[in-house]
């Protein structure tokens, strides 16, 4: 059995599954990373992913095309980011309570709207989701072709976000301003920039990415919306941000490692399901996240102004 599990690592299908599982986590983690870099912990992530999954799917279900679905999900995500900013940035309310409130609000209003849209459906209706695109030439490479180059457009888009977020954070004035807002907001103020505005922008961009992570579930990984389908992925993304030390490429590494582990537990369940109950396999991703946080905690340098509301004229 051990041998069969080791063989998985040389199985292209296993790595293709890993790539698919990593996508929603990757986008959500990048989104959270941008928010936290600006000094705001966004615990609304789980609810924003849920609402993103719902509106992306709904747009396509009601006749929009897939790219419109992505756009609508991003816009709705950004508006929940704005709502978060009104509470946590402009009013300076507790970021923890704001985030939990946004998560409960976004998911309950999502479920309420879904029930109004489809009052009594037992089997959730399906949409035509993103289809697999085989990249010419590259997809013919043995092993790597199947693992990396036979995915949906949304999957390639998700991975493209890593260099884009890296570029945004490290090569643009906005990225620099976001990082200073999270490290030393007084310095930003001294430069004549508006800390509250910069944090709001970061929350809106970050929340849009989270919503895309949710939309990936209903528009690429699956083709329908289910209750509770985000299933803690948002909380795992928060653990991954810490694991990644707020660096986009380390977030990619974390999401891939985590997804490989998740794909592994699914296969292990099939192999060892007769001896060990399936619930223990399902527990592993959550336990792994906690363990990863414990190991990352020692070397963690949180953005210095994380969780601290900025009030003009008050010194910290």
């Amino acid at each position: 059995m051990i041998l069969e599990l080791l063989e998985l690592l040389f199985n292209a299908g296993f790595w293709a599954a890993t790539i698919r599982i990593a996508c929603p986590l990757l986008m959500a983690t990048l989104g959270e990373l941008i928010c936290e870099r600006a000094g705001v912990l966004n615990l609304g992530i789980e609810g924003i992913m849920t609402i993103g999954a719902l509106v992306g799917w709904t747009t396509v279900y009601l006749g929009g095309d897939l790219s419109t679905g992505i756009l609508v999900a991003a816009l709705v995500g950004a508006s929940f980011g704005l709502l978060h900013a009104l509470f946590s940035v402009y009013l300076g309310a507790s970021q923890h309570v704001t985030g939990i409130g946004i998560t409960l609000f976004a998911s309950s209003i999502g479920y309420y709207s879904f029930r109004i849209l489809l009052p009594s459906s037992t089997t959730p209706p399906k949409i035509v989701a993103f289809q697999t695109i085989e990249i010419p030439v590259l997809s013919d490479i043995p092993f790597l072709g199947i693992a990396l180059f036979q995915h949906t457009t949304f999957t390639y888009f998700a991975f493209l976000m890593v260099p884009i977020v890296f570029w945004l954070m490290n090569k643009t004035p906005l990225g620099l301003a976001i990082k200073v807002a999270g490290e030393n907001p007084m310095a930003l103020e001294a430069q004549g920039l508006d800390v509250l505005f910069i944090r709001t922008i970061a929350l809106m961009i970050g929340s849009a990415l989270m919503a895309l992570g949710g939309a990936y579930l209903t528009m690429s990984a699956f083709d329908a919306f289910y209750f509770g389908m985000v299933n803690g992925r948002g909380w795992i993304a928060i653990a991954l941000v810490i694991f990644a030390s707020w660096q986009p490429f380390r977030a990619l590494l974390g999401a891939i490692l985590f997804a490989a582990f998740d794909a592994f537990q699914v296969r292990a369940q099939q192999l060892a399901g007769a001896f060990i109950a399936y619930q223990f396999f399902l527990m592993l991703p959550y336990i792994l996240s906690i363990v990863a946080m414990i190991f990352a905690a020692k070397s963690t340098h949180y953005p210095r102004a994380l969780l601290i509301p900025f009030r003009r004229g008050e010194r910290h």
């Binding site: 912990l41 909380w235 810490i242 996240s289 906690i290 946080m293 414990i294 905690a297 020692k298």
Partner: peptide, 8 residues
């Protein structure tokens, strides 16, 4: 160990 309790 300074492990954030919200996530755990």
């Amino acid at each position: 160990l300074k492990v954030d309790e919200v996530v755990t």
